[in-house]
Design a protein around this nucleic acid. Sequence first.
DNA 1: GGTCCGTCATAGTTATTACCTATGGCCGCA
DNA 2: TGCGGCCATAGGTAATAACTATGACGGACC
Lengths: 308, 308
Amino acid sequence: MDTQHLKAFLKIAETGSISRAAESLGIAQPSLSQQLLRLEDEVGIRLFDRTARGVTLTEAGKIFLERAHQILQATELAIADAQHLREEARGQVVFAMPPSIARLIGAALVEALAEKAPRVKVRIVEAFHGTIRGWLEAEKIDLGILYDLGPLRHLAARHLASDELVLITPRASEEHRGEVSLAELAGRPLIAPGPQHGLRQVIDREAARAGVALDIVQEIDALDTITELVARGQGIAILPHCSVMDPVRPGALSVTHFASGGLWRGFSLMRNPSHVLTHASVQMESQTRAVIASLVAEGGWPARLQEA
Amino acid sequence: MDTQHLKAFLKIAETGSISRAAESLGIAQPSLSQQLLRLEDEVGIRLFDRTARGVTLTEAGKIFLERAHQILQATELAIADAQHLREEARGQVVFAMPPSIARLIGAALVEALAEKAPRVKVRIVEAFHGTIRGWLEAEKIDLGILYDLGPLRHLAARHLASDELVLITPRASEEHRGEVSLAELAGRPLIAPGPQHGLRQVIDREAARAGVALDIVQEIDALDTITELVARGQGIAILPHCSVMDPVRPGALSVTHFASGGLWRGFSLMRNPSHVLTHASVQMESQTRAVIASLVAEGGWPARLQEA
DNA sequence: GGTCCGTCATAGTTATTACCTATGGCCGCA
DNA sequence: TGCGGCCATAGGTAATAACTATGACGGACC
């Protein structure tokens, strides 16, 4: 099937006549007639009823008309996207990510862009998972980082890295050299974010998978506050390892990995496939990957790059 | 651009080699090489870097790869949809609509289907606007009727008819022979559904457009209760004309049309374009149209079929 | 460092496909 | 019943795409 055939089909549907469509397309009527027959053969069903005064769409033709529009739109988008890469990367990219990730890569990303793609301006917006998702679907932003919480219907995802979730306890305890399983946390006072928070959803999903009922005694949406509360002995917490890299003062907090390979939370670069893809935003993606890779390589972020 | 070229492109990307892709496709290597060159010429940018051990996707190639998948998927969907119409219409169609519309067309639709397409089984589900929209997006239903409340990103809409909204007052009043404007309702006690309700959203939109602040004294989501309250003198209401066809008892309720052509609320047949379109569901659409048209023609429903 | 092997690109030829002109059949209309 | 507009078919021709053979390039291996 050729886009040319689809365009011819649309023109025939528009004019209601093969002859007029042929004239409009600058080809002979029999050629267009055969093009249509070939298309109908390929689709496997008659698309037009032939009458003495032109042609009219069959029921199947009406359905196919909608689809043909979609196909042509998709091809135009494909070419437009690829064309963007011919020009120099430039322009503003609005890039939303959770605060925890923005804190880690934000500054480095801006620096890397200034060097590698100086004409690309990034506006980094901190927001939470649900908000970012809404913005992406409404095409209010160009790119976003979301946690892998299940398939998102209308968005294109490309995995970036996975963060390890670890158990945070008040002080160096008997378990800090070993590993712990989720089941062992049953009944212990857990401090976690509220149900809307992306981290909480991962915790709930994993707890459900392990068949464990966790005892969440406090719901706090600020990770720094959670670590502070743990340090003061108010409970324990499950947090991404990176978020407690700084606050691990000797004697104040203790980090314990989870058993059987640990608990990992993946996150991906997301964009809306209906949104036009610029060279600037492609640059943004590769710079983001580079920044994360170098952070991980330098040991500044205990993440892994492979898919979870 | 031909689907064949796109498939060849995908195969080259998959195998990482023009030679191997050519062998796999059963054509000679130079042919495929030229196909690729033509495709790159059409797209306007190089899609592969040629190396001594095959080819690797360029940045533009990676972008185009995603798009090519989308295009091929769309064409397959187009053909599959059209093919469905070759078979006899059969199977179950889950069709959701607001209660007010279900009451009007539900029975007639089932009867019409039994006669015209006996092997199509319909399951009519009553639900409210927001719920139906969610079901459509989640592909939990095949078809739905939604009020025209603004463009819906991921859904395909086909207008069915428009309902007239009229002013309902307690008894035959001085205005019942004439017309009324929204502005005249300012300050009068209006009974309306809650903010989630589709009807309320139409009222709010029209009031905002007219620059009128309505005084909503009661929020009731049940239309029958609203008419009863109006009959008892608790206030006035704006309702679709059809919903008060029965309750208009002489002396109990009075119907007044709105000025300047009246207030109309369109509603459309919606479906999810990602959802496979069966012959049964196409039949459902035409039977729905036929039922509405005959209802309107017989005077059983004061609606108009043209776009609002 | 030279040779070999595999890769992709190009050239020339052949086969296929698509287009054009001419014409026939069909239907509605006068 | 003849006319005019429409689409389909037929046959010749032009354009396109396929094939075989060969060239150019780069990495691997001795």
